[in-house]
């Protein structure tokens, strides 16, 4: 039992390590993955400026920009990662190793969180500095709680998607691309989701980022409270439930998809 735990902890660290080191080993990544998204965020800031929106909307955009780092990471480095590992021939190595598949996913998630956080911090600091936005939360403990719950639920969703993507062929790439903008819209990355109305907003709340962003917006900005979809307490509760549900589903789905993949002989298929 103790050896098994130790092996799995080492697997988690091993999978996270390549991402932590990889993030620093390629200088071009720093430019393209950190600096460029900041410029993309700036575009939406200027749109609000052209529209004459209140200054707090600039803060909404920066917060949305920070969260895009995590969503893109979940989409491209979690959900589609097993598909990519299959393409590069690493997947079979993971499957024959004496470790839980969840350890691999957890390692990917932790490494990905590190990569995304470096990017998010640059967007935050760059955004505050360039656009002169004040972002001081009304409650630090609540902000940390909301952020952590949002991340657990989000990466739980990523793990779930990863097991589903295990079965995909070339369409995995297309589906990841397809999921990008719709989630930006439904999660209200750059505008309050209150504008959707209650029914659509409730459906959109199944995506952890929706309530996470709405809650953080309320904690950071007065206008965030004016445009809030739900009270923060409810959002924290729903995020906690989503965290448990997505992690549980991810574990179940991973086992099911792996078995299905073995039966159908799709775990080692490449370029299909």
């Amino acid at each position: 039992m103790k050896t098994e735990l130790k092996t799995n902890l080492r697997a988690i660290w091993g999978r996270a390590y390549v991402r932590v080191v990889g993030a620093q080993r390629e200088p071009s990544w720093i430019l393209f993955e950190i600096m460029m998204p900041l410029l993309a965020v700036a575009t939406y800031v200027f749109v609000y400026r052209a529209l004459g929106a209140p200054k707090e909307f600039t803060g909404f955009v920066i917060l949305g920009g920070i969260m895009t780092a995590y969503w893109l990471n979940v989409l491209w480095s979690m959900a589609s990662q097993f598909y990519w590992e299959k393409e590069t021939g690493n997947l079979e190595l993971y499957l024959i190793a004496p470790i839980s598949r969840m350890s691999i996913l957890l390692g990917m998630a932790l490494g990905g969180l590190f990569m995304s956080t470096t990017r998010a911090v640059v967007i935050l600091l760059g955004g505050i500095w360039l656009f002169d936005v004040t972002m001081v939360p009304s409650s630090w403990p609540l902000l940390v709680l909301v952020f952590l719950l949002c991340m657990v639920a989000l990466y739980g969703l990523g793990m779930l998607a990863s097991s589903v993507f295990l079965m995909f062929g070339r369409d995995a790439w297309q589906i990841s691309t397809l999921l990008q903008e719709p989630i930006y819209v439904f999660s209200g990355f750059y505008f309050p989701i209150k504008s959707f109305g209650f029914t659509l907003g409730t459906i959109a709340s199944l995506i952890p980022l929706t309530l996470g962003i709405d809650a953080m917006r309320q904690l950071f900005f007065e206008a965030g409270r004016t445009h809030a979809f739900l009270p923060i307490g409810w959002e924290i509760l729903i995020l906690a439930v989503l965290s448990v549900v997505f992690l549980w589903l991810a574990n179940k789905a991973l086992l099911k998809m792996e078995n299905l993949g073995k039966k159908e002989g799709r775990l080692t298929l490449r370029w299909q």
């Binding site: 939406y44 749109v47 609000y48 529209l51 004459g52 929106a53 909307f57 903008e181 719709p182 930006y184 819209v185 990355f189 750059y190 505008f191 309050p192 504008s195 445009h227």
Partner: peptide, 13 residues
């Protein structure tokens, strides 16, 4: 959807 982001931003303001 990328267009809808801008439409919704515009409508909010």
């Amino acid at each position: 959807f990328s267009t809808l982001i801008l439409v919704l931003m515009y409508k909010v303001v």
